[in-house]
Design a protein around this nucleic acid. Structure first.
Length: 490
RNA sequence: GGCCCGUUCGUCUAGCGGUUAGGACACCGCCCUCUCAAGGCGGAGAUCACGGGUUCGAAUCCCGUACGGGCUACCA
């Protein structure tokens, strides 16, 4: 097959974009980009009960957030539009007409009850599953007559009598053989005229000239059926690549119990799209077995089906968190300052306007924060003390840091020293504060913890001298004085 | 039941006949240190699911078994 690569991601809008679906999308996208091919987004919305426009919108949003861009599909159009299955009904009936004419599809009038009886009988007996082809034995005239009568019927695939074993040469699994005996005349079109998944998806993949089908493992068993439809349609069979599932920590299907499952939720919880992309990419694929942190371009330059692993993966939230921290840390200060803005805004701490006014200040703040947060949601709590008029001292922290004998005098000395500082920089502040413990013959950490609690309100904070520098002289001195007053009262 | 797929440190993985079975997260220790992080160094952790073969030699190839998963729908 030497034609240009065309791949597709075909989510069903019955829910939000899941991490499993996201990974499938990423692999398809990376494969297309790597080979200069076309990445198509198609919405498989044939389930009228559960499909919603809201879900579709959310899926598109999540994909975009992750950095996926599609060459054909919703919002961008393309030569094979429309890209919603519900709008492609004509194609399915056209395909069925062709198959009827060629005898590769036939009507079946068996009722659900009859089918159930057949199934349980078969299961008791030789174990051969599938439809027993009762209606296939009807003559053309008989079938026509029943249809004319208005008898409800579905359309089934007439599996060729001479069709041998079906070999799927899967790019991930290798050669997988499905015995011909296991192939049944499955339903192509329901009695209400709508196509089944196995039919619609093949008609679409054929019409869109999909060359590689990269999708979840759960479709592997359906593949021989689909291959037969491709053959009945006289269309080339694409290459398949089946991805293993992503599980929760207990080896069960990933669910809310395990934490976030939808891409949107990861976003809300403070994860960066590039980190989630990286982590997902690594769940079943490896660059070289050594490199763990890499950007999207590494994927678009190196992605290959051959390096996809066969075994299922368990989603490791801790590793993702570490990776997110790694991405935060490597971000240039300027960029981090911009990226933290939405989170500060959301927390009601700051506004983009403020960033415009004090870019330098934010640039100084950035590295102090980025070095110690793993998620964007942690930024707010870490920097809040710098944006508030006064600080509320945590009682437990106060009890710990202010209980040392002589704290009042120490804080007085600190306030005085700071107040007398002509130059308000971290180094100048450090210099003058270092002299305090010496003077009182105390351990530096004892003194600095007292100042930290006084200024930041807690026992854990951004580096002290830098924090004071960013806070400003007036506020710093005021907070130390306030603490001093509080201490003397006890 | 039938048919398919999978099984390397707790987790993600490298490995594609000959390696002291490598890396990353998590964990532990030390260093750095104003707290917390980050960083540096080191450590522990895998009888390669199990049993048979093939081979001079198997985590790697073949066959079973066990355990997990998928499909077996007028769901996708």
């Amino acid at each position: 097959m030497n034609q240009p690569v065309r791949v597709r991601f075909a989510p069903s809008p019955t829910g939000a974009l899941h991490v499993g679906g996201a990974r499938t999308a990423i692999y398809n996208w990376a494969f297309a980009r790597r080979h200069g091919g076309t990445f198509i987004l198609r919405i498989d919305d044939t389930d009228p009960e559960r499909s919603t426009p809201e879900n579709t919108a959310q899926i598109l949003r999540s994909l975009r957030w992750l950095g996926m861009d599609w060459d054909e599909g919703p919002e961008v159009g393309g030569p094979h539009a429309p890209y919603f299955q519900t709008l492609r009904a004509r194609l399915y009936s056209a395909a069925l007409e062709r198959m009827k004419a060629e005898g590769s599809a036939y009507p079946c009038f068996c009722t659900t009850l009859e089918l159930e009886a057949k199934r349980s009988a078969a299961r008791e007996g030789d174990g051969t599953p599938g439809y027993d082809r009762t209606c296939r034995r009807l003559t053309r005239d008989q079938a026509h007559a029943r249809i004319a009568e208005g008898a409800p019927h579905v359309w089934r695939l007439a599996v060729p009598e001479d069709r041998g074993d079906i070999v799927v040469d899967d790019a991930v699994r290798g050669e997988t053989v499905f015995p011909a005996s296991a192939m049944d005349d499955f339903v192509l079109v329901r009695s209400d005229g709508t196509p089944t998944y196995n039919f619609a998806t093949v008609v679409d993949d054929a019409e869109m000239d999909i060359t590689h089908v990269i999708r979840g493992d759960d479709h592997l068993s359906n593949t021989p059926r689909q291959i037969m439809v491709f053959e009945a349609l006289g269309h080339f069979v694409p290459r398949f690549a089946h991805l293993s599932m992503i599980w929760g920590a207990d080896g069960k299907k990933l669910s809310k119990r395990h934490g976030a499952t939808s891409v949107e939720q990861f976003h809300a919880e403070g994860f960066l799209p590039e980190a989630l992309l990286n982590h997902l990419a690594l769940l079943g694929w490896s660059l070289d077995g050594e490199t763990t942190v890499f950007h999207a371009d590494a994927l678009t330059h190196n992605f290959s089906l051959e390096r996809i692993s066969k075994n299922p993966a368990i989603f490791d939230f801790e590793k993702l968190e570490w990776m997110n921290g790694a991405y935060i840390r490597e971000m240039p200060n300027e960029r981090f300052a911009e990226r933290m803005m939405p989170w500060l805004e959301q927390a009601g701490i700051s506004t983009p306007d403020d960033l415009e006014k004090r870019r330098d200040w934010y640039r100084e703040l950035a590295p102090l924060v980025s070095e110690r947060v793993k998620r964007m949601t942690e930024i707010g709590p870490a920097v809040a003390f710098l944006f508030q008029e006064t600080v509320t001292v945590d009682p437990t922290a106060a009890a710990k840091a202010f209980s040392v004998e002589g704290t009042r005098d120490v804080l007085d000395a600190v306030a005085t020293s700071l107040d007398g500082l002509a130059e308000w920089t971290p180094t100048a502040i450090e210099e003058v504060l270092r002299a305090i413990p010496e003077h009182f013959a105390m351990k530096p950490r004892i003194v600095f913890q007292a100042v930290r609690v006084a200024v930041t309100g807690g026992l854990v904070s951004l580096p002290l001298f830098e924090s004071l520098a960013l806070l400003g002289k007036a506020a710093s001195v005021a907070r130390v004085r306030a603490a001093e007053a509080a201490v003397s009262r006890t």
